[in-house]
């Protein structure tokens, strides 16, 4: 179990707040749509901080007028992967950004085992650090 403040993975914009309700998620989706950003839903069972590419639950959604469509997709992802991490990412295509502009977690496994720190002692007092995701001790799709 994780021992940090919230005993949970704190990636994303809102991990220090209580889990977002669907109403709160809708408000955040509306914010993204108002800014003209595309919305992607991604999931993973390996939340290593440098695991950049979570699996896409379908392509990012462009041209939405209303948050309900994205929420439907989020709920569908939750139903399919109830015990994995699911995050919502907003993408801004504006020149000079062309990168994600929002990212927040909307689903977590019931138990979050967290990470271990592997220290390899090298020359002098220096150490090479490796962050190890406990979940990945098990094969894919058998974690959590």
């Amino acid at each position: 179990m994780m021992t940090n403040t919230n005993q949970r993975l704190t990636q994303g914009q809102f991990s220090f707040l209580p889990d977002l309700t669907d109403t709160q998620i809708t408000a955040q989706l509306d914010y993204a749509l108002k800014n003209g950003w595309a919305i992607g839903v991604e999931y993973t069972d390996d939340p290593h901080p440098r695991n950049t590419y979570w699996e896409m639950f379908g392509n990012p959604m462009f041209d939405l007028k209303d948050a309900a469509g994205a929420l439907m997709e989020i709920n569908s992802a939750r139903k399919t992967f109830p015990n994995q991490y699911i995050r919502v990412t907003a993408f801004d295509a504006t020149r000079g950004v062309e990168s994600p502009t929002m990212s927040y977690i909307v689903n977590r496994p019931a138990k979050e085992p967290g990470f271990g720190l592997v220290r390899q002692e090298v020359d002098g007092r220096a150490i090479r650090y490796t962050i190890h995701s406990y979940a990945t001790d098990k094969p894919e799709s058998e974690r959590y």
């Binding site: 939405l64 007028k65 948050a67 469509g69 439907m72």
Partner: peptide, 14 residues
């Protein structure tokens, strides 16, 4: 399914 869902998502709110 993805095609229909894509259309439905775009139509949401309207």
């Amino acid at each position: 399914a993805p095609k229909t869902k894509e259309v439905l998502k775009r139509a949401m709110g309207g």
